[in-house]
C-alpha cells in the first residue's frame, strides 16, 4: 500500500511537470465545446466556431466590469481594420447573470460594437476555459487552437494583443 501510494505521487508529480512543459503557450489546446446562446436566443456550440481559417478573439466581459468595457471600446476603434484587412473576428462573451443580462443588448448597441455577442449566463464556457475573473481575452487560431490568453486589461494591452495577432498571421 505504501509503495502504491509513493508510486502514485511520483506519477502525479511527473505528470504535472510534463504537462507544464508541453503546455507552454497552450498551443495544443482546443476551444472547448459548450452550448450557450447569442443575444437573440439562438443556440450556439462554442466548439463549432470558425472564421474561414482566420483568427478569432474571444473576450470575456460583463456589463458591470469597467476594464472589460474599456478593452472592448479600445478594440472597437480598430475593429473595422481588423475585420477588413485581416479577416479577424471578435466574440465578446458576456458572463452577466440575470440582474444584468437584459442590459447586454442596450450596452452593446449604444456602444456601437460590431462584435458577435454570446451570453454565458450559466458560466459554462467561463468554467470550461478556466477564467477566474473578467476580463480575460483569448486568441483562437484558424485551426481552433487556443494560442494566446491574457488576464485583465490596462491601456496598452491591446497592442500586446495586436502583436500576437500579427505574429500569428505571419506564421
Amino acid at each position: 500500500m505504501k509503495n502504491l501510494f509513493l508510486l502514485s505521487i511520483a506519477i502525479g508529480i511527473m505528470g504535472v511537470f510534463s504537462f507544464t512543459g508541453v503546455n507552454d503557450g497552450g498551443v495544443d489546446k482546443k476551444m472547448p465545446s459548450v452550448t450557450l446562446t447569442d443575444m437573440y436566443g439562438k443556440t450556439i456550440n462554442s466548439g463549432d466556431i470558425s472564421n474561414n481559417g482566420k483568427p478569432i478573439i474571444i473576450s470575456f466581459w460583463a456589463t458591470w466590469c469597467k476594464p472589460c468595457r474599456q478593452e472592448l471600446n479600445t478594440i472597437a476603434e480598430e475593429y473595422d481594420d481588423l475585420v477588413e484587412e485581416y479577416g479577424i473576428k471578435l466574440i465578446a462573451v458576456s458572463i452577466d447573470d440575470e440582474r444584468n443580462k437584459s442590459k447586454v443588448k442596450p450596452v452593446v448597441d449604444a456602444a456601437g460594437w460590431e462584435y458577435d455577442i454570446w451570453l454565458d449566463t450559466n458560466s459554462d464556457l467561463k468554467r470550461a476555459m478556466g477564467v477566474n475573473y473578467p476580463p480575460q481575452t483569448f486568441i483562437i487560431d484558424g485551426d481552433g487552437n487556443i494560442v494566446y490568453s491574457h488576464v485583465g486589461f490596462v491601456p496598452g494591452d491591446e497592442q500586446d494583443l495586436y502583436d500576437a495577432l500579427l505574429k500569428l498571421m505571419e506564421e
Binding site: I11, G12, G15, S18, F19, V22, N23, K29, P32, M129
Partner: peptide, 22 residues
C-alpha cells in the same frame, strides 16, 4: 495524484485530450 498524472499524460496532442482549469 493518479488523476493528475493520467490527465497530464493524456494532454499529449496525439491522444487528443484537453485539460483546462484555473
Amino acid at each position: 495524484c493518479l488523476l493528475a498524472g493520467v490527465i497530464s499524460y493524456s494532454q499529449n496532442p496525439m491522444q487528443g485530450g484537453n485539460v483546462t482549469g484555473n
